[in-house]
Measured scan of single mutants.
Amino acid sequence: EVTIKANLIFANGSTQTAEFKGTFEKATSEAYAYADTLKKDNGEYTVDVADKGYTLNIKFAG
């Protein structure tokens, strides 16, 4: 089991951190699915992958 950390960075400057656990593939998939649910209210997003994929910096356009 691994932990994927998602740093969520919103257009208004606020930030939030979420963690997803499971296999690497499952946790990564859940992180992207979570970002997709936030897209409606926060706009499109870009992802900067860090720490060999264990950290995702997800920035929303607003």
Rank of each mutant, 00 (worst) to 15 (best):
K21H: 15
A31W: 02
A33P: 00
L8M: 13
A31E: 00
Y32R: 08
G53W: 02
S29E: 13
T55Y: 06
Y34N: 03
K21Q: 13
T28Q: 10
N42D: 06
K59N: 14
T15H: 13
K52V: 08
K5M: 15
F60G: 00
D41L: 12
T28R: 08
D51S: 05
K52Q: 14
Y54Q: 07
Y34C: 04
Y32V: 07
F10I: 04
E44R: 09
E44H: 14
V2R: 05
A11L: 10
G53N: 04
L56M: 08
L56G: 00
T3V: 12
I9S: 11
N12S: 12
K21L: 14
E25G: 06
L8C: 04
K40A: 10
V47K: 02
S29H: 15
F10Q: 03
K59P: 01
A27V: 04
L38Q: 10
Y54C: 04
Q16L: 13
T37A: 13
D41Y: 07
Y32S: 03
D36I: 04
Y32L: 15
T23S: 13
A35C: 04
E25F: 05
F20P: 00
D51L: 04
N12W: 06
G62T: 11
T15S: 13
T55D: 03
Q16P: 02
G62R: 08
D51E: 11
F60Q: 01
K52S: 15
G13Q: 09
N7E: 07
G13H: 11
I58W: 01
G62W: 07
E30K: 06
I9R: 10
K52Y: 15
A11V: 14
A31P: 00
K52I: 09
K21G: 08
G43A: 03
N57F: 08
F10E: 02
F24D: 02
A18E: 11
I4E: 00
G22D: 07
I4N: 00
F24Y: 12
G62A: 13
T23K: 04
A33C: 05
E25R: 03
Y34S: 02
G43E: 04
E19W: 14
V49N: 06
Y32M: 14
Y45G: 01
E25S: 07
F10T: 03
G22H: 02
D48I: 14
V47F: 05
A6I: 15
T46P: 00
N7D: 04
Y45D: 00
G22S: 05
T3C: 04
K52L: 14
K39L: 06
G43K: 02
E19Q: 11
F60R: 00
E1F: 05
I58P: 00
S29I: 11
